[in-house]
C-alpha cells in the first residue's frame, strides 16, 4: 500500500464494492500512520456513500470530504471545494471514491490538472458477480468508458468479487480468474484480492499473495 501513488482514485460499477474498499483502504493507510484524506466524489448514489461513515472515520483521524451541502437528504450533485486540499497538499495521502458509472465518474474530469501521469493510481474495483462486469469484453468496455469520461488511466485492478455476507472462497477465486484475464488483455496489473477477514485462510497461495482483507463498514447488522 505504501508503494501505491499518493493519490488513489477508486472506480468501479456501483455494487462492485468500491466504497467499502475505499473506506477500508483509508482505514489501513491511516493505521500505517499516514495523514489520510478520503474524498467522496459519488454524486450518483444517494445511499451507502462513504460520507455516511464520516464519524467513524474521523475518529480514526481520517479527514472525510463529501458535499459542500450538509444533510443526508440533499439530492444535489454538489462537490466541496475542500476536495483540492488532499490533492494539492502533499502531506496528505488521498483516497478518492468515485461515483458508480461513467456518468458518475465525470466529476473526476474536473481535477484533471491535478492528476499527472505517474503521480496517481486509479484502481478499478471488479466484482465478477455484477451482471455488468461478468466477462472480459464487458469489463474492458467499462474501463474504456470510464477512462474516457475521467480523462485518467486505470493503473491497477482490484478483484473484489463478492456476494456480500454470503461470499465464499469460490467467488473470490472466480473473480481472480476474470481479473487475471482482464489484466492479460489490458496490460493493467492486478493489485489486490479483496475478501472478508474470515475467508483469507481458505484461499490458495497465489491469491493470498495480494490479499487485502476487509471489514464491512457499509452493511448494517440486519443486512445480508
Amino acid at each position: 500500500m505504501k508503494n501505491d501513488k499518493r493519490i488513489r482514485i477508486i472506480i468501479g460499477h456501483y455494487g462492485s464494492g468500491k466504497t467499502e474498499f475505499s473506506v477500508n483502504y483509508a482505514v489501513k493507510l491511516s493505521a500505517l500512520g499516514k495523514k489520510v484524506g478520503l474524498v467522496d466524489l459519488d454524486v450518483v448514489n444517494l445511499y451507502f456513500r462513504s460520507r455516511e461513515k464520516a464519524q467513524i472515520l474521523e475518529e480514526k483521524g481520517i479527514r472525510v470530504i463529501g458535499s459542500a451541502l450538509k444533510g443526508t437528504a440533499v439530492d444535489i450533485p454538489a462537490i466541496s471545494g475542500e476536495v483540492l486540499t488532499p490533492l494539492q497538499d502533499k502531506t496528505y495521502d488521498a483516497v478518492l471514491d468515485i461515483g458508480g458509472d461513467p456518468a458518475g465518474a465525470r466529476t473526476l474530469g474536473r481535477y484533471k490538472d491535478f492528476l499527472v501521469d505517474g503521480e496517481y493510481d486509479m484502481f478499478f474495483v471488479l466484482n465478477a458477480n455484477r451482471p455488468e462486469t461478468q466477462s472480459v469484453e464487458k469489463v474492458m468496455e467499462f474501463i474504456v468508458k470510464i477512462q474516457d469520461t475521467t480523462r485518467a488511466k486505470v493503473t491497477g485492478i482490484i478483484n473484489n468479487t463478492h456476494l456480500l455476507k454470503s461470499t465464499t472462497t469460490e467467488d473470490v477465486i472466480r473473480g481472480y480468474d476474470l481479473a487475471m484475464e482482464v489484466s492479460k488483455v489490458s496490460k493493467i496489473p492486478l493489485k489486490y484480492n479483496v475478501c472478508m477477514e474470515h475467508l483469507v485462510e481458505e484461499l490458495p497461495g497465489e491469491i493470498k499473495d495480494k490479499i487485502f482483507p476487509i471489514t464491512l463498514y457499509m452493511r448494517e447488522e440486519w443486512m445480508i
Binding site: 456501483y14 455494487g15 448514489n45 444517494l46 445511499y47 451507502f48 458477480n129 456476494l163 456480500l164 454470503s166 443486512m223 445480508i224
Partner: peptide, 10 residues
Amino acid sequence: DGMIGQMMEP
C-alpha cells in the same frame, strides 16, 4: 422503500 430500492443483494 428507498432502502430496498438502493440496497445491493444477491
